[in-house]
């Protein structure tokens, strides 16, 4: 007698230590901790580290200056943390406004009738047809740079893909039997929108925001790096990176390395969390 055939994928039999939901939660907590640590230190650190102290300039990393100091003797750890704090604020604000625009546009396109749909579809195509960075540079240039320019630029360029998704989702949802039935059961449009449609969209909006956030930070850094974003006096990651490029050839590697790695860490951790959430809310992979 042959042994019973037992075929069980590792996800089910516990071949991995934790199931996907547990890993997702751990990743989310870890990212949140990193984020709050950066924000906390960034806000709590005294501004004195940003003052120029020429007697200790160009020092490599040491115990008193963990990330080293730059050509003006400023503490790189303070600069990095302050810069990240600013970047995170800009990223969060830009991602949130982007999602808000996307939600409004998607909703209007799906619910506002044919003409509205056409107009919004046209605007969406317009924004999608130009690369993000070009529009972004244009907008920040017109608005004269600074936090405001970067923020508005990112918010205005990142909504189209998401608005499209929301529109498609709503169009599909509106045709489902249970939504159509709801009006036959005597429910008003507003009631259906808030009870049936909105709860369905919320997870999408959340993941959308988490996905835009790292983009927003990177774009902020890149246009600041190009000199069109924040002013050189502000401790932004983009500024730090662009300035330190000039000193790389002279062997001051720590000027670019630590701020760059910190940026990467924040961006990656958010990417990871949003990827987990996406897998968990997708029905095909929800139970794995």
């Amino acid at each position: 007698m042959k042994p019973d055939n037992l075929a069980m994928p590792d996800t089910a039999s516990g071949g991995k230590w934790l199931n996907r939901r547990q890993r997702a939660v751990i990743a989310a907590i870890a990212s949140a901790m990193v984020l709050f640590a950066v924000l906390g230190f960034g806000l709590a650190l005294p501004g004195s580290g940003l003052d120029a102290r020429l007697e200790i300039r160009n020092q490599p990393p040491s115990l008193s200056h963990l990330f080293g100091t730059d050509w003006l003797g400023r503490d790189m750890l303070t600069r990095t943390l302050k810069g990240l704090t600013l970047s995170i604020f800009v990223g969060l604000a830009a991602a949130a406004s982007s999602v808000l625009i996307a939600a409004i546009m998607g909703l209007a396109a799906a619910m506002g009738g044919r003409y509205m749909d056409h107009i919004i579809g046209w605007i969406t195509d317009l924004f999608l047809s130009v690369p993000h960075l070009v529009t972004l540079i244009l907008i920040s240039f017109i608005l004269g740079g600074g936090v405001k320019g970067v923020l508005i630029g990112i918010a205005v360029t990142h909504w189209p893909a998401m608005a499209r998704m929301i529109r498609a989702e709503l169009l599909q949802l509106r045709e489902t039997d249970y939504v159509r039935l709801s009006s036959r059961l005597g429910r008003s449009r507003w009631w259906i929108a808030t009870r049936h449609l909105l709860p369905h969209l919320l997870p999408h909006l959340l993941t959308g925001m988490l996905l835009i956030f790292p983009h927003a930070i990177l774009h902020e850094a890149s246009i600041t790096f190009l000199g069109l974003g924040l002013s050189p006096h502000q401790p932004a990651i983009g500024i730090i990176l662009s300035e330190s490029m000039r000193y790389l050839s002279t062997g001051l590697w720590w000027l670019a390395f630590f701020p760059g790695a910190a940026l990467l860490l924040i961006v990656r951790s958010f990417d990871r969390v949003s990827e987990y959430i996406r897998l968990l809310i997708h029905p095909a992979s929800a139970q794995e």
Partner: peptide, 21 residues
């Protein structure tokens, strides 16, 4: 106030006629 409609329909696939959430 809205009231239910006097003609009600029952579908073939009940799974699609209820909000899964």
């Amino acid at each position: 106030n809205t009231v239910p409609y006097p003609v009600q329909l029952i579908f073939q696939h009940p799974e699609q006629a209820v909000n899964p959430k």
